[in-house]
Design a protein around this nucleic acid. Structure first.
Lengths: 191, 191, 191, 191
DNA sequence: AATGAATGAGCGTTCATTCAT
DNA sequence: AATGAATGAACGCTCATTCAT
């Protein structure tokens, strides 16, 4: 009889929004942003096509909110005092963190790599992507400088590339990739 | 004027086919397989849309022939006697080769990585891709076994991942990636 | 507190209904019937989308009730004794009235002209529209007959057309159209 | 066997383009620009929906080309020497022309009036429309100045309004509107 | 009397593919 | 061997309308 309260509506909205975000992430990861369709996302979320647009402005907004949500949850994990450099333990923690994030949601990272390949085709990523990458790299540059490396920039770039490569291979073969051995070997060779 | 021989006709067909393949590769690399259109490929090749279908069954066949052609030209570069293992020189040669291939045609590798992310959505790749990768890896497994590594499979997989990661980063930033320094560092750390 | 009487409920309903009708008229006038959306009408009326359907059957019903309401309030303004013809004063009054109605609510007349153009696409107007126009015209036919015009029907139709044309031009440029000069000239030329 | 020549293609294109323009004009006139659908236009033209986009950029481009085509054919009809003013014969010719154009293609003018009501919603018309109208009006202002009218601008505006009104009424009732009588009366009253 | 989540048909548009020439 | 007109399915998106609360 009486209309729902705004708290009830908010709850419904938040829940449904997360269901759609999840479905979209899965479709994007499997088919790429371009290859995924709103129809398929809606079907996977168990709702009608039109409802997606009750929660998101458009397809790109869906992607943006997926990225932002992940970005927020990742940003909190970085050490704050990286101006003073990293201890060997912290270095190892960051490598660990990289693989923990992968295991927790390899689908997001599959999406991440697939959009990294066509950043120009998605407007808001042209600024976001380089920021994200350089924040990661700077931590390593500082670490290698502090260690007295001959070429800390190149070494950091290589480490970044190694983590990318290992992540990529894990993502493509999550069941057979020897993630723990690889992680250990990376720590030994690059610490 | 004598009529053209069937060899001459074949030559013309092959030349045109290669022009189309090249145009398709460039479009696929820039816009991704899904984002590229037959129209744009035809325009880039300087022919009509319809003619593409005289040479190729469909869009996916275009992709398949691009991959196969590249695959053939790469396969020839591998040492034949890899049953007997690699000498350190040959090991270094393979790493060199990896980066030479990248520099020669980074567009192909951009396409390669971008489709590697969605193997399920492109039927013929589901079989081809793993073959391609394992052929590459086997060479390294043999090498590390011969060197007496504790875990030659994992070490080979890591090296494969490193090469993937470095390649990927080079592709995304061909102008700023310190490719030669990185190559040297990889050889030192993984030989 | 005593419970509200049914008259009070009716009053509330009528007020809300008029708010919606007003909002709908404004949206229709600005964006055309086809271009206006129920969402925007509800937002302008400060209510929810769903509530519109508590008061009106559908979008077309909204339009119909706008027209009927205006029609009723206009009909009352016509002289009752038009069977006996119009005095020159009454003639002038009707012309005046035409422009007073325009000034009072030019948005309604904008809507009126815009739907007049597509009567076939709005079912209920196919009958209503001609009635409305001929009632207006008959007054002028009687006037010109009484004046002894050679072709009173044609003269009445021309006058109707002149009023339409002047109204239309006023609606499209309410700020620059010299409405008073034009009115005077119409009275001089057509009385 | 041999492909069609470019002349043959041009012929096909021109013919088909005109068929589509005609179908679009009819749909726009009956349902308004907003109310008409590309589907219905294609069906009326006897072609598939997709083909419309082989000939026109989008729905608005269709409208623009209809307007421009009509505009070009009308512009040629205006007297060139209107700087020197109009003789009474030329004045009458212009009134005649107005009605001849109406008779020749009253559907275009129906569209014209219907878009005149929402010029803001169609970008390219915001500039085109006022130009079109003022070109028409200027001829009359010059005429009335030359005749020594007290208020030539207002008189020209009234005449414009009268022609609009008569045109509008003819368009809405092409079969019953006494176009010739009305034309004569306009010439008498406004020359 | 009132909300806004939800639906589904239809919109404008794109594009892989076919086909007459 | 070659053209580009033509199709039709699918896309992203909008919106009138319904309904549980």
């Amino acid at each position: 009889m009486s209309p729902r309260t705004s708290e009830q509506f908010k709850k419904i909205r938040d829940d449904k929004k997360n269901i759609i975000l999840r479905a979209a992430l899965e479709e994007f990861a499997e088919k790429s942003f371009q290859g995924a369709s709103i129809s398929a996302i809606a079907k996977r979320a168990g709702i009608s096509k039109g409802l997606v647009y009750n929660y998101f402005l458009n397809k790109e907004d869906l992607l943006e909110q997926i990225i932002n949500k992940a970005w927020d949850s990742i940003s909190g994990l970085f050490p704050n005092n990286n101006k003073n450099g990293l201890s060997p333990y912290e270095f190892q923690d960051i490598i660990d963190m990289n693989f923990e994030l992968l295991k927790k949601d390899y689908r997001f990272w599959k999406l991440y790599f697939s959009i990294a390949m066509q950043p120009a085709s998605i407007k808001f990523l042209e600024k976001k992507m380089p920021e994200f990458i350089s924040e990661f790299l700077n931590v390593f540059v500082t670490y290698y400088k502090q260690k007295g490396s001959v070429n800390p920039e190149a070494e950091a770039i290589l480490l970044g590339a190694v983590l990318d490569g290992a992540s990529l291979n894990y993502i493509l073969n999550p069941d057979t990739f020897p993630i723990n051995e690889v992680k250990q070997m990376i720590i030994e060779k690059f610490k």
